[in-house]
């Protein structure tokens, strides 16, 4: 395993406001368990607010972690000594949805891509001059882009520059948080192809976060479905998409509009909206929206249980074994 996440829990202080300002905290990730093998893509899906971005941020130490463990290549990421942090975290790079906010508007493409190499004293200046154009070629950009500024790039080109920069330090893992959400369909296809090629050629592992299930399905080997800060079902991508077991996964997949609506089995849609993590439902968090809810679901929280090659959090599945 490249990375093991055990019991990862993240809380934010709740902003005291119209409730009278009493300090309480909101748990947005609760007891998250995930695994990622080398060179593999784990797709993380879930509605907005389910905690996907918080997960990405927690791995990079960008939000305080309440408890849990992240072991990356054997090192405990959350308890590293300062000197080790630099060495280990360069192996993990993150790419966000909006490439323009990831790029300094005043830096030329050359300097943006060279920045991590300089910061980590990775290469002598002459080597950097050679390596940067090479990285650009890797992401399908010609050297003519070296002197451009971010505003002279299209969304797809800017996202390629961000990827080139992420590759500069030869990472093992790319955390991709909605990397194609801001792009047009035809550009999205180009970036998805690029991601597949980079993975093949560099043996990269991806933690691929997206609300777009068809994009996740396209790239992922395994899938984790999140709901209100918990994983409700995870397993091999073909299994999850082909035979979803958890009631929430089933409903989520049903809601995706496809080019072949005639293949759809039911027209039902999930009722109600996602509750706020500040007031999580009692028992099973899915219960206010679950078509199969039972009395017990309102009281008892189901544990994450393993079934053959998948894990799921649901009383009905635990019973059925």
């Amino acid at each position: 395993m490249l990375m093991h996440i055990r019991g990862l829990t993240v809380s934010y202080p709740a902003v005291g406001g119209w409730l009278g300002g009493r300090r309480r905290s909101v748990t947005v990730l609760e007891d998250l368990d995930l695994e990622l093998a080398e060179g593999e893509t784990l797709g993380v899906v879930g509605e907005s607010g389910s905690g996907k971005t918080t997960l990405a941020n927690a791995l990079l130490g960008l939000v305080p972690v309440e408890r849990g463990e992240v072991s990356f290549q054997g090192a405990d990421l959350l308890r590293l000594r300062a000197k080790m942090v630099r060495r280990v975290t360069r192996e993990i790079q993150i790419v966000f949805q909006n490439p323009y906010s990831a790029l300094n508007p005043r830096l030329r493409v050359f300097d943006a891509v060279a920045e991590p190499l300089r910061a980590h004293r990775e290469a002598a200046p002459t080597e950097i001059d050679e390596h940067v154009p090479h990285l650009l070629r890797e992401v399908g950009l010609t050297p003519e882009f070296l002197d451009r500024h971010p505003h002279e790039l299209s969304g797809g080109q800017a996202q390629r520059v961000v990827l080139a920069r992420a590759l500069a330090l030869n990472p093992k893992l790319l955390v991709l948080d909605e990397p194609t959400a801001a792009l047009d369909i035809s550009v999205q296809a180009q970036i998805l192809n690029l991601l597949r090629r980079l993975q093949r050629e560099h043996g990269l592992a991806y933690l691929f976060i997206s609300h777009d299930l068809s994009v996740v399905q396209h790239l992922s080997d395994r899938i984790a479905v999140m709901y209100l800060g918990q994983v409700v079902e995870s397993g091999p991508a073909e299994e999850i998409f082909g035979h979803p077991q958890h009631p929430y996964t089933i409903e989520l997949l049903e809601a995706v509009p496809t080019l072949h609506p005639e293949r759809r089995t039911s027209q039902d849609t999930l009722p109600a909206t996602v509750p706020s993590p500040a007031y999580p439902p009692t028992g099973c968090r899915v219960h206010p929206r679950c078509p199969l809810v039972e009395e017990r679901c309102r009281r008892e929280q189901p544990a994450l249980a393993t079934f053959q090659n998948r894990e799921a959090r649901c009383h009905l599945l635990t019973e059925a074994g």
């Binding site: 299209s154 369909i185 035809s186 999205q188 296809a189 180009q190 998805l192 192809n193 597949r196 068809s214 994009v215 399905q217 396209h218 991508a237 998409f241 496809t258 080019l259």
Partner: peptide
Amino acid sequence: RGLLASLPEPEKRSQDLPVILGS
């Protein structure tokens, strides 16, 4: 044709998607 072909769909899983070049 190009737009439809470039959509990720289950049948095209783990394949390169056809793309429309240019802008």
